[in-house]
Design a protein around this nucleic acid. Sequence first.
DNA 1: GTCTATAAATTGATAGAC
DNA 2: GTCTATCAATTTATAGAC
Lengths: 201, 201
Amino acid sequence: MTTAPAARRPGRPARYRLDELLHVVVEQFNARGYDATSMEDLARATGLTKSSIYHHVSGKEELLRLAVARAVDALFAVLDEPASVQGPAVARLEHVVRRSVAVLAAQLPYVTLLLRVRGNTGAERWALERRREFDARLADIVRAAIDEGDVRADLDPRLVTRLLFGAVNSIAEWFRPDGAHGVQEVADALVATTFRGLRRD
Amino acid sequence: MTTAPAARRPGRPARYRLDELLHVVVEQFNARGYDATSMEDLARATGLTKSSIYHHVSGKEELLRLAVARAVDALFAVLDEPASVQGPAVARLEHVVRRSVAVLAAQLPYVTLLLRVRGNTGAERWALERRREFDARLADIVRAAIDEGDVRADLDPRLVTRLLFGAVNSIAEWFRPDGAHGVQEVADALVATTFRGLRRD
DNA sequence: GTCTATAAATTGATAGAC
DNA sequence: GTCTATCAATTTATAGAC
């Protein structure tokens, strides 16, 4: 007797795949904040009961972990793109900035959530650790750009990195896919207002 | 029989003034997040009981309200300084940026909390409203600087404002009074990396 | 001004039927 | 895969003594 190919019983079709569930959940986390969102809130938003949610995940924290992992993966993928590892450091930096803005826009709810984690749970502390790692990789590029003589040497690389990606990350606070500014326009404006200061005259 | 001048009974001296209490509370709110901080957490951190805290304030939300109001007041005071209302707009903008960084550093825990409010409570919605008002005032200055020909006209004033103050606000995420960078150094670096992009050549 | 004791509601999570 | 029913712990807040 072999295992039947997951025959679906007619009465109750599966309402959610995990990624669809996650989509609704992350919206709630962003609207109310992770801690202020109860499983009851999530049940209401998904149209499921609390119990049904526990069928998909082990608990609230796993929902957070899955969501921030998605954002982390997307951002780290940028660092591995050819244009992030080849060529002059100042060009690599601009590429990473532009692509980070693009990823932020494309994965807006997930990146927004990632940028708000506080460190209360294990999942949050893991996310903070990865963010620090990302920042360190960026600072390396800034440092290289200084060494190559394309970025002013009178500024601390760590400080420049923080301010530059502070501006990048702040985009998550107000960017909307259907808003007044397109991704390209935002990235252009950011590069224009920062790189002209970064580049040596 | 007149009212006695608040004779303090020897047994239990007042442990806290409201602002001292608030100092401890805001530290907790920032460390755990407002929603994740329970009155029990606050009791432990202050060394008081939950009941005693309710003697000072009406509840958790009033603590939040008092804290964010302090940050809002300090930031709006910057807009009323003489150098924020007199002279060329581009100079006023630089002054507001530098002074905002200074206020952020001086009132770090309170501004940090303000920048994290989500809008769940009345106090939070009030804070978000004031932040929008602050942003609008800034955008006015940027617009004036464009009109006066000192800032590039090819960028949207609202967008420039958001990116510029996104960088300013991000400072709250990592700045520490005893850290590697002084307030002056941070403000200088920020102005250097942004205004050289903003100023017309 | 601070305490002990406790109320009323909500929370994250589980058991077990269908 | 979703449900009803329920639990134990925690949460915000109050009552009343000293």
